[in-house]
């Protein structure tokens, strides 16, 4: 499902070249729940961004479901982000001027694969499954952080992506809400079969995964499949 080959990312700074990710090779099988763990600044979020088509690698390739992501044209890359990947950020990422249902429907409307009415019906269904059926017309500011995160997961799933990437989705949430969010993500992985890659600095969360990849100083220091 996911293969990274010698993926690197470097940035030019005033103090010279800084390497965030250095020549990573990584494989994640389809349908697996993998966790990438490491300290802050280890390069895990940068690696995730390159996998998700959000940040161009300085070197190397990322293959998702047979597609060399960074060989795609601009429009094809946008379509990849729209259809193949669902991304959950570590911060509140809903658009504040749109209702919850509009936020969830937006990726499908951008991709224009389905009509508006079908898209909104699916968005309502996803929000219902996330326990947010009562908040379809609410704005993000009217619901809690945990509810916003669940809505963001619903948005990430609207186009049935093959790969769901969650970048520290619970880092700013309380323990109870963190548990709820993790339950939702694991349910998506288990029941729908979506490949889930979770970035976290929390070992307890990582241990819930079937594959744990430990990153430090931009490189993989450990990569173990807990359950095949």
């Amino acid at each position: 499902m996911l293969a990274c080959r010698q993926v690197s990312k470097s940035y030019k700074t005033e103090r010279g070249l800084v390497t965030a990710v250095a020549g990573i090779d990584l494989d994640v099988a389809a349908g697996r729940f993998a966790a990438i763990i490491g300290r802050s600044g280890s390069g895990k979020s940068t690696l995730m961004a390159m996998v998700g088509g959000l940040s161009r690698p300085s070197a190397g390739s990322v293959i998702v479901d047979g597609t060399d992501v960074w060989a795609l044209s601009d429009n094809a890359l946008a379509a990849f982000r729209n259809e193949k990947v669902g991304y959950v950020f570590q911060f509140a990422s809903l658009l504040p001027t749109l209702r919850l249902i509009d936020n969830v429907a937006l990726p499908a409307l951008l991709g224009r694969r389905h009509g508006a009415s079908g898209t909104y019906a699916r968005a309502a269904d996803l929000l219902e499954r996330m326990g947010l059926g009562a908040y379809l017309d609410a704005y993000p500011s009217e619901i809690s952080a945990g509810e916003q995160r669940r809505a963001a997961i619903a948005r990430a799933l609207i186009n049935d992506p093959a790969l769901l990437l969650a970048d520290e989705p619970t880092s700013d949430l309380d323990e109870q809400t963190e548990i709820e969010i993790m339950e939702v993500l694991r349910a998506v992985n288990r029941e729908v079969g979506t490949t889930l890659v979770l970035v976290t600095h929390n070992l307890a969360l990582a241990e819930q995964a079937q594959q744990i990849i430990h990153i430090a100083n931009g490189g993989i220091v450990a990569n173990g499949v807990v359950v095949a």
Binding site: A79, R81, S93
Partner: peptide, 15 residues
């Protein structure tokens, strides 16, 4: 940030 989010969920440059 908002524009980045739109790109992240698949908005094309023209959009």
């Amino acid at each position: 940030g908002e524009l980045g989010m739109l790109k992240a969920i698949g908005a094309r440059r023209s959009q």
